[in-house]
Every structure is written in structure tokens, then in C-alpha cells.
Nucleic acid binder design. Structure first.
Length: 94
DNA sequence: GTGATGACGGAAA
DNA sequence: CTTTCCGCCATCA
């Protein structure tokens, strides 16, 4: 398992998020939320990665205004300033 | 080599 | 509800 493989694995998981739904950092990289966070932060990823569909475990947004707007447009349910994870979150897949 | 940092998570107070 | 503290992985000084 190389670093590139790990990156690819995480990127793949994010790319698999359907429109109108979100996943948390902990979901895309279980046990290493900082890793997925850093991957998106550094911009070390292809352009086809829906980074705005990745939110914090409590539903709050990490990036800010733009992310909230993009999610809203896709029909992601909000609960105040946070995403309603009970409706929009995709549980970790086996 | 060590130590600090970050689009984080979860438990504890 | 809030703030603290510790663990997590990969970079960077």
C-alpha cells in the first residue's frame, strides 16, 4: 500500500458520492480524517472530484460560502448552517 | 532526526 | 449548547 494508492482510494471514494448527498471526512478515510482533509486542501486531486460533497462529521462545512451554495443547488437538505446528515449522509460502504 | 500544523473525529467536562 | 484534549496521517521548517 503506497501513498499514491491511499490517495487514489480516497479520491475514488469522494468521486463516488452521488449528487445531492454528502459524506464525512471520517467516511472517506476511516481512521485518518486528517489525510483526506489534507488531500483536498492541497488541491492534489483531479478536477472531477466533488470536494464540496465532503463535510465534517457534525454536518458543518469546512470550506465556507461556496461549498454551502453548491450543496444547496444540488438539493442537499440543510438544518440551519449545517447539512442534515440524517438525510444526506451516505453511511460507510462495505 | 524532531516538532508543529491542518478542509478532522470523538470523548469528556 | 461550548471548550479541551488526544489520536490520526502526511508534509514542512
Amino acid at each position: 500500500m503506497t501513498i499514491a494508492d491511499r490517495h487514489e482510494e480516497i479520491i475514488d471514494a469522494i468521486r463516488a458520492i452521488p449528487e445531492g448527498f454528502v459524506r464525512t471526512y471520517g467516511d472517506v478515510s476511516p481512521g485518518a480524517p486528517r489525510l483526506s482533509a489534507r488531500l483536498l486542501a492541497t488541491g492534489t486531486h483531479p478536477d472531477d472530484v466533488p470536494w464540496w460533497r465532503v463535510v465534517r462529521a457534525d454536518g458543518s462545512l469546512a470550506v465556507g460560502e461556496e461549498q454551502r451554495r453548491r450543496l444547496w443547488v444540488e438539493g442537499v437538505p440543510f438544518k440551519g448552517t449545517r447539512v442534515d446528515l440524517d438525510l444526506a449522509r451516505i453511511p460507510h460502504e462495505p
